[in-house]
Design a protein around this nucleic acid. Structure first.
Lengths: 341, 341
DNA sequence: CTGAAAGCGCTAACAG
DNA sequence: CTGTTAGCGCTTTCAG
């Protein structure tokens, strides 16, 4: 099966009557090697199809050229694009990317992190699960000197490196947009279990306050777990005595369910109900009317997170100065919220 | 920064006045170690927070407990679900997953494979890029004894392990479905550059033949590269003297563009035009009318591919018997193709 | 500019 | 049941 055994620097050394140190140096362009020798070595190496054994190198240098990514779930548009961005930068820097998903479960997340450190990743990009409140398992990593960058789903109130958007501001703007389009009674439909959603909820409320609109608790639904539930909650909401004329949904998935449920009841969008979502998922451009949304630069968030991580990795001196990078979102006004004026 | 240096089995051995071999054995439940010693060792190990250095172990055993996945692009519903399935099984087997994307480019794919073998993955799951015709770089791997499983995008005419669907049959059934719904003149809109699409094209043609319908070359579009082009081609197609009354699209993305373009022209779907897509993407359930489609078990394809790979990895004796696993697809008939009878 | 030698941390004969 | 020993392949002082 294994036809030719792997060639090592010993084989090259023998062949050229040089020492392994010289081979090693020549291969990585060490300045103190004669140009001639270097070429000779490299030529032989390629002709032998020599591939350095990274495990041996890792064992010496404690560098694996691998970074890890832990996401709640990789088959979701947002996260897969995020990972795509990370992978892109990593490869450009000669790194490979190890990926695992927590499936939104705390225990799995902990296990994944263990597995990652067992694989000696040089750094980690983490988007925490909804269940993750206690982050000792992560702070321990950081103390141990392994660079960690949080992205999107960041833990509450921790001084750490992170790449995020301004969820408060984005939600504020989304809500304000509905108001400017004429909505007077706006509902919030989504979740609130993690910090990012709490920020959106806060932004929503503050926008209402700014325009002296009432914050009606009965119009705040924080339990939109799936399409079915969302549809049900939408119906309930629209059936109240004073139904909303605007809805801020914390995701496009939810926004789309809202539109579908509303349309099924004969509610005209946007004439009777303005809707805006969040994420700029592909589905937002398919639903009719097209769903207005907040677009997040998910791919770029991955890119920036990876770049940031590599900075941390290279600056060994690291005076552990933690920074928070905030990327811009964009409000995309589409049919679901643009009233014909 | 690095507070406590990593503990090694030497530290444990010293502490307990045992040899490193005993520690090593105790830790992995080697049968020939006294129950008592084993417990003692394990207890100390956990109390020290000992984490075995996988690089050292790898260097000895040539096992990294890492598999690689190469996909054209990870931020697409199909591939991200596929990867999700692979990751799931890998973790269950104690493996980590290294991921990279070829961005549909042959050279990048080659580079990724190099990087993977440099990271000493124990096996690979590959979905090749559209550009990949020559697969020497991969057969070389296989000869070298590294197990490879192809999935979905498989190279043409190679005896290798693969997990696929029956693209011919699925396309045949999709086309037949349109015929049974009353379509007499059916167009093919999609691509044809890789084998998988050629199979779909073949299935489409054979279905037409079976029902004695003419295969009109002017109704076969194999260049639907993006939404814009697809819309344009759809318009062109519908403007011909004898326009189609049915369209088989090789992906839901294309199918959705077709529907949008047709609706914009005032063509009634499904009354005047039946449409069916492929993949069961989320968007297929958002477009109106909902797009009929062929659902592929992408997550399961990942699961099966990973299981298959682990089989290959464990059976070192490997009489390299290559197998092709075919998973079932399902035709989901929805509004875009169901004529009110 | 090149070589000798030690060692990264773990494993597995082989020998008690 | 436990210990001795010799590496896995590479890097890196320290000496020339």
């Amino acid at each position: 099966m294994n036809s030719k055994k792997n060639v090592t620097i010993y084989d090259l050394a023998d062949e050229l009557n040089l020492s392994t140190s010289t081979i090693s140096r020549a291969l990585k362009d060490h300045p103190s090697i004669a140009e001639k020798t270097r070429r000779k070595v490299k030529k032989l190496a390629t002709s032998y199809g020599f591939v350095p054994n990274s495990m041996a190198a890792s064992l010496r240098n404690k560098k694996t050229k691998i970074i890890g990514v832990i996401a709640p779930q990789i088959n979701r548009p947002f996260h897969s694009s995020l990972i795509s961005g990370i992978e892109h930068i990593a490869k450009a820097s000669g790194y490979n990317v190890l990926i695992s998903q927590s499936h939104e479960q705390f225990e799995i997340e902990k296990g994944n992190i263990q597995a990652m450190i067992a694989s000696h990743v040089e750094g980690l990009v983490i988007s925490i699960s909804v269940e993750t409140k206690d982050i000792d398992h992560i702070t321990k990593l950081i103390e141990k000197g392994i660079p960690v960058i949080f992205v999107d789903r960041v833990p509450e109130g921790l001084e750490a490196d992170m790449v995020v958007i301004d969820n408060y501001k984005a939600a504020f703007e989304a809500t304000e947009h509905l108001i400017l389009q004429g909505s007077k009674r706006i509902a919030y439909m989504g979740l609130s279990d993690i910090w990012l959603y709490q920020e959106r909820l806060r932004g929503y409320k503050d926008a209402l306050k700014k325009y002296d609109l009432t914050i009606a608790e009965e119009l705040i639904e924080t339990n939109c777990l799936d399409a079915e539930i969302t549809a049900e909650l939408t119906r309930k909401c629209l059936d109240t005595k004073s139904p909303p004329d605007g809805i801020f949904a914390t995701s496009d998935t939810i926004g789309v369910s809202v539109i579908q449920a509303a349309k099924a009841k004969g509610v005209k969008i946007p004439d009777q109900l303005n809707v805006i979502g969040f994420n700029n998922d592909p589905i937002s451009r398919i639903i009719e009317p097209n769903l207005s949304t907040i677009s997040q630069p998910e791919y770029d968030m991955g890119v920036v997170a990876a770049q940031h991580l590599f900075n941390k990795i290279s600056e060994k001196n690291g005076i552990a100065q933690s920074s928070k990078i905030q990327l811009k979102t964009e409000l995309l006004a589409r049919g679901s919220s643009l009233r014909n004026s």
